[in-house]
């Protein structure tokens, strides 16, 4: 039972990482596009990008914690 629980937790974390992974990719990609179009706004774009990544990453972090809790 213990082994099964651990395996399910692993799968759960893997699933939880999909969404944030895609999301962070989209954010970073669009940020690169924005920086390429307007290099003078690169500082602002970078900050906003980190913010967006932080919010998106929170989901993966919750998954990480739940993996430990399981």
């Amino acid at each position: 039972m213990e082994v099964l629980k651990g395996a399910i937790a692993l799968i759960g974390y893997g699933l939880a990482a999909i969404g944030p992974g895609v999301g962070i990719g989209i954010i970073a990609g669009n940020a690169v596009q924005a920086m390429a179009r307007q290099p003078e706004a690169a500082g602002m774009v970078r900050t906003t990008m980190f913010l967006g990544i932080a919010f998106t990453e929170a989901l993966a972090l919750i998954g990480f914690v739940l993996f430990f809790l399981a």
Binding site: E2, K5, V65, F67, F68, L69, A70
Partner: peptide, 9 residues
């Protein structure tokens, strides 16, 4: 038992 990960948190 089994709470090793939680202890880390």
């Amino acid at each position: 038992e089994g709470g090793g990960g939680l202890r880390l948190l």
